[in-house]
């Protein structure tokens, strides 16, 4: 095992014509982490991964995978990574098993070993029944699983997942998340790109928000949410008649304006200083106001995205879905 970060990238640039697809991206991914690259379609996520995975040559900047430069030692880097693309990189015309055999043999396994390992992986990805069927007849989720399975033949220490769940139904998406968590437990480092904010939130230890080829924010999910500022305090008053009294207490103690949803007797107020919540609760007890529910709501990554980039990720999401339908 070696020390140092799994990925180090400084000032990566890739220009397509006049479009600066990636415009100076810095990344640092520690070993054993799940690192999320979050951004809308066309933000430069795939291009960044392609450069890190030696598929594209950066025009400026440098990147090292476990200390090996992607331009100077591409073959070494390729021995350390597995890549699962946004669109399944498998052969549609032949069967799942035949795909695995070809990839396994290219990785230096004998025909027999490649077949054994292929069957094993297909089995663990729930594709054993479909092993002999042509991939063209697979569903989207099956294809994605096969794609990931073929990236894992050599059990690489670093795995790139480019939008691993785009276009998958919620159940299959949940399975994919489990696989990713399993990979990290096994000691792999995972870099995943996603348009889904909750996916990055669920899986990633650290997140880079990327927009128009630049990293516009970086940190843990909590840090990013912290950038948008305050969390909200949510109270549900047991006796709806007491709601207004509660509001008065909140405004007095927290010093902020509270909003009320009448039907649910719910009071929401921005929470700047958690210390004061204790004071508020004591005050409510003194006034004999009973609470059914109390919770703190952190800002969602959607809000983070809007704050940082000035536009939402959702609009880009829809555009991406349209594209997929058209394609």
């Amino acid at each position: 095992m070696i020390t140092g970060p799994a990925i180090e990238a400084e000032g990566l640039v890739k220009v397509f014509g006049t479009n600066r697809a990636v415009d100076g991206v810095d990344l640092r991914v520690e070993q054993g982490a799940v690192y999320g690259v979050l951004g809308p379609n066309g933000a430069g996520k795939t291009t960044t991964i392609s450069m890190l995975a030696t598929l594209l040559r950066p025009e400026a900047g440098a990147a090292r995978i476990f200390g090996h430069d992607v331009v100077a030692e591409p073959n070494v880097v390729r021995q350390l990574i597995g890549v699962t693309g946004q669109y399944a990189s498998v052969d549609e015309k032949v069967s799942g098993l035949e795909n695995m055999i070809v990839f396994g043999r290219l990785l230096g396994l004998s025909h027999r070993e490649a077949k054994r390992k292929g069957l094993e992986l297909l089995e663990s990805f729930g594709l054993a029944d479909a092993a002999k069927r042509p991939v063209g007849k697979y569903s989207g989720g099956m294809r994605r699983r096969l794609d990931l399975a073929s990236s894992l033949i050599s059990q690489p220490p670093l795995i790139f997942l480019d939008e691993p769940t785009t276009g998958l139904d919620p159940r299959t998406r949940g399975q994919m998340w489990d696989v990713i968590r399993g990979l990290v437990e096994g000691g792999s480092t995972v870099l995943l790109t996603t348009q889904y904010l909750d996916e990055a939130d669920q899986l990633a230890d650290r997140i880079a928000v990327i927009d128009r080829g630049k990293v516009v924010a970086e940190g843990t999910a909590d840090e990013l949410k912290g950038m948008v500022g305050t969390s909200s305090l949510l109270l549900r008053v047991a006796d709806a008649a007491q709601t207004l009294v509660a509001v008065a207490a909140v405004e007095q103690v927290l010093g902020t304006t509270a909003t009320v949803t009448p039907e649910a007797a719910r009071v929401t107020a921005p929470m700047t200083d958690p210390e004061r919540v204790t004071d508020l609760l004591i005050r409510l007890r003194e006034q004999g106001i009973r609470l059914d529910e109390i919770s703190v709501q952190k800002p969602t990554l959607d809000e983070v995205f809007l704050t940082i980039t000035g536009h939402t990720a959702e609009t880009a999401d829809e555009a991406a879905e349209d594209e997929e339908v058209a394609a």
Binding site: M1, Q79, L80, S124, F125, P156, P157, G186, S188
Partner: peptide, 10 residues
């Protein structure tokens, strides 16, 4: 449950 194998550093 999809079981994944531990990473192997070449």
């Amino acid at each position: 449950l999809i079981e994944t194998r531990p990473a192997v550093f070449p």
